[in-house]
Amino acid sequence: MLKKRIVGVVTVKDGWAVQSSSYSKYLPLGRPELIAENLDRWGVDEILLQSIDRSRSGLGPDLDLLDRVSKFGLGTPLIYGGGISTVQHGQDVVRAGADRVVLDCALHSNSALTRSLSLKIGQQAIIGCLPVSFNKKRLEWFDYVRSEYKPLDKIKDVIINSVVSEWLIVDPVNEGKKNKFDAQIIEPLRGMIKNIIVFGGISEPQQIEDLSSIDQVVAICVGNFLNYSELAVNKLMQEVNGTQFRDATRGFSKGVSQ
């Protein structure tokens, strides 16, 4: 049986891993490569490096960061998002060490990008990202480069025209806030998307159980809350009931006393 995944998220700003709250307040955590190395050792199912300042500042993807992380020879699949706006960027990111790429801002301006990129790195390596939230009871898509919200119809067009394997649905309002993910943001999208990854304010075993009971949810991202203790992934998963996930004792931490 294909297991649902727990994705460890490392949020990077100005080259440093940060603890983020609603993508507006930040506390430094340290070197991203060391946090990625911990997540690898503990056995998260995938690691997502998100460089949140690259698109807004037009810097392109952070290839130096990927180079530093890949030098550790991670035994865990690595996803990278941030600053990818061309096919060459996507190829460079994979070349620098990512197994999969996340496209977010580029989807607003270049809907054909996923199709051309898939011919180079394969559809399975591409994840589309949709930061969404409710505004006056209507679900809207947030374009954080332009700081504007777009109506749901725009999302539908992008979903239909994109060649991606999964969609990362982000709750930007509740990101970084304990137990605050708004599961209602998934509802209008469930009929349109087969494979959903969720992120933003997910910290509790019960939340993970509830979200994983949704058929379309294939992976759950946890960010800040994995940085508070050694073997945090293993401890978190020990409290999650059900057989939809891998065992709590996993990764290179197998045999390590907990």
Binding site: M1, L2, K3, K4, R5, D45, Q123, Q124, S165, E166, K194, N195, V218, A219, R246
Partner: peptide, 10 residues
Amino acid sequence: CHNAHTGWNT
């Protein structure tokens, strides 16, 4: 019936 097989499987 799927567009990809992604993740951990037995």
